[in-house]
Structure formats: structure tokens, C-alpha cells
Design a protein around this nucleic acid. Structure first.
Length: 280
DNA sequence: ATGACTTGGTAACCAAGA
């Protein structure tokens, strides 16, 4: 299975570019974030014409997640347990959930397309929401893997956290003043990893960004951030045979501000057949 | 110079992104 994740920043604004990528790169499963449309507005036909079926989930111009797959998408969920909600003027435990998570089982792999809340600013209600959202994801991860230790689980998407200083090349994102690099966010990311999922891309692609702001020539200056990840359980990580960050997708006509991250998985290979990198 | 992009929705700006 060739699995990719991409914050597309509006599916309707660049659907041809995204389908072209999926076809050209022989992607089997493409998790998308920030589709920026309602479910019924998703351009399903363009994906279907290319051999994909699609599950999409969105209900406003904000957020929205989707999964396109060449194989059947089963057991679809639009939230993980205790996922908190958020709405302007409607904070607290009763706030409605947003379209930020889409889980499914595809060919035996549990895949979640995740769009972690941005946080907006330190001290903003959205920042607390982000931390609560990450805590609920951590708890779901721990409980799921406690019940099914051998489950191939992939948490993929835009985590809106640069886990290390090397993952932040944007000079305006300064610790103490900005989200994405604050210690509580980094601790929340580490806690999810401690719950049993690992960044399966970094061992194979140790450097490189996945996002560059549209403003201030951030891409030509390569002042980006690594905030899009594929976190895999042990069973998933053991199947990884390759990983790529497709930096070229930030170039050309009307790019997203994020680029796709791709992982190759081979569940059939014999454990003793050691012709692939041992990363864990 | 407290911003310099891009998107979608709405009604000519505005919220949101990170």
C-alpha cells in the first residue's frame, strides 16, 4: 500500500492537480485535510474517474477531511471518542465538533485523516481547544493499541506542531510568542508518540519541511515548517519500506501551502527478509 | 508599517490559516 497525506487547502481550488499527483505517484490511499467544502460539494467524480472511491466529511468553508482509496473504505468514523468541539461563542464541553477527523479501515489498516486545530495564538481559546483535542487523540491511541497491540494504525495529517527546533524554519515563529512550537504542544505530540505511534517518515527523510507560508517568499527562502506527519503503530511501522516528502508540489500554478507526505507499506514481506531498512 | 498571500462566503470586506 502506498499511503499519502496532504493538506490540500481547498479541494475545489486544485482538484486536477491533486488527482494528477495521486495517479502519477501511484497512490493507493490519499488522506486529505482542509478540503474547505461541504461533503456534497466535494468533486467526487474527478477521483472516481481516476479509479478512487472517496469518503469526505465537511460542513462549512472551514476545515474538512477526506480519504480517497483504490480499495474499499470501511468502518468510517467522523470523530474519535471524546474529541472536543469548538465554535465561536460556544465554548466548553457542549461545543459542536468540527470536521477534523475521518477514520476508516482500508485493507486491514486503520487510517485516520487528521486536521489538528491550529491554536491561533498562545492563550487563545483555540489554543486550549488544540491541547484538549490532542489529549483525546492520545487517549484514543493508547486505548486502541492496548486492546489491539498488533493493529496497523496510521494517524496521518496536519498536526500543526513542529516537534523539534529543526522542524521550524520560519523566522516569525518564535518560541514563547507563537503556536506550533510551544512546549505544551510539543509535549502533547510526544505524548501521542508515547501512546504507541511513531513518526515513520523521519527515519527515512530526516530533514525537510512540509509547509511554507504563502507570504514573504517563505518557499523560495525555504523558511517552512515540518508539521505534516504519518504516525504509525508498531505493526504499521514494521511494514514501512519507503517514505517521501514531495517538495515539488509547492511549486507551479496555484499550489497548496502544504506538500504531500508519502509512505510505502509492505505487509506481505517476511520478517526475516531483511532487505529493507530497520527503523524501529 | 501593527501587513504585504490565499481561500470561501458574503456583499465589498472579513475570518481563518500557522
Amino acid at each position: 500500500m502506498r499511503l499519502a497525506t496532504w493538506n490540500v487547502n481547498s479541494i475545489r481550488a486544485r482538484v486536477d492537480r491533486i488527482v494528477d499527483f495521486a495517479v502519477r505517484e501511484h497512490i493507493d490511499v490519499l488522506a486529505m485535510q482542509e478540503i474547505k467544502c461541504k461533503t456534497e460539494q466535494f468533486p467526487f467524480e474527478k477521483f472516481e474517474a481516476a479509479g478512487f472511491e472517496v469518503e469526505a466529511y465537511g460542513f462549512s468553508q472551514w476545515n474538512g477531511v477526506a480519504i480517497a482509496s483504490r480499495k474499499p473504505i470501511e468502518n468510517v468514523r467522523t470523530a474519535f471518542p471524546d474529541m472536543p468541539g469548538f465554535a465561536k461563542g460556544h465554548e466548553g464541553p457542549d461545543a459542536p465538533q468540527e470536521a477534523r477527523a475521518l477514520g476508516a479501515t482500508i485493507d486491514g489498516v486503520e487510517v485516520w485523516s487528521l486536521y489538528v486545530p491550529n491554536g491561533r495564538a498562545l492563550g487563545d481559546p483555540h489554543y486550549d481547544y488544540k491541547l484538549h483535542w490532542l489529549k483525546a487523540l492520545e487517549q484514543y491511541t493508547r486505548q486502541t493499541l492496548a486492546a489491539s497491540p498488533d493493529l496497523p494504525l496510521a494517524l496521518v495529517g496536519d498536526f500543526n506542531i513542529a516537534p523539534t527546533d529543526a522542524d521550524n524554519g520560519d523566522p516569525t515563529v518564535v518560541q514563547g510568542f507563537a503556536t506550533h512550537v510551544s512546549p505544551p504542544e510539543r509535549e502533547a505530540f510526544a505524548a501521542i508518540e508515547a501512546a504507541g505511534v511513531h513518526d515513520v517518515v523521519r527515519p527515512l527523510v530526516p530533514t525537510g519541511f512540509t509547509y511554507w507560508d504563502y507570504k514573504q517568499l517563505r518557499f523560495p527562502r525555504n523558511e517552512g515548517m515540518r508539521i505534516d506527519f504519518v504516525l504509525g503503530s508498531s505493526a504499521l511501522a514494521d511494514a514501512v519500506t519507503g517514505a517521501e516528502i514531495h517538495r515539488n508540489e509547492r511549486k507551479g500554478e496555484a499550489p497548496s501551502d502544504h506538500v504531500p507526505v508519502v509512505v510505502d507499506l509492505d505487509f506481505a514481506s517476511d520478517e526475516d527478509d531483511d532487505d529493507r531498512p530497520m527503523i524501529f
